[in-house]
């Protein structure tokens, strides 16, 4: 009997050992909201070598929402957005996974990024 419970414990540990992805999001659905008061487009992440991967390929007039896009990106990335054909660095942020609303704001001429779940 003792052996059986040992084996059951082992089996349950084995099964549980690969189930973290059941409770942690491994995908992110991103939607962008423009609160800057001017037109922005193409929310992106920027690589160390300067490559750009566009996450939200929409052009947003002021106070509008983009469509939602899904990516296998969870972690820390450098964000940027285009405004009047210039790339604006939004800094390094942690993307938590799940449904995320990215609000772009402009205060004192500075673009800032805020996540809202």
């Amino acid at each position: 009997m003792k052996n059986i419970s040992k084996q059951l414990a082992l089996i349950s540990v084995l099964i549980l050992s690969s189930c973290t992805h059941w409770i942690v999001d491994t995908e992110t659905r991103i939607q962008m909201e423009n609160r800057t008061g001017e037109e922005i487009r193409d929310l992106s992440i920027v690589s160390e070598t300067g490559q750009i991967k566009i996450l939200v390929p929409d052009t947003l007039k002021k106070d509008t929402l983009s469509r939602s896009y899904e990516y296998e990106l969870v972690g820390k990335f450098n964000f940027a957005v285009f405004s009047r054909d210039s790339l604006i660095d939004l800094g390094r942020h942690r993307l938590k996974g799940g449904m995320i609303l990215v609000q772009i704001e402009k205060e004192d001429g500075e673009f800032t990024l805020r996540f809202k779940r």
């Binding site: 690589s47 070598t49 991967k53 820390k76 390094r92």
Partner: peptide, 12 residues
């Protein structure tokens, strides 16, 4: 977490 040129990716 995996480190790539894009950033740090959570994973296993």
């Amino acid at each position: 977490a995996l480190s790539t040129e894009w950033g740090i990716h959570d994973g296993f």
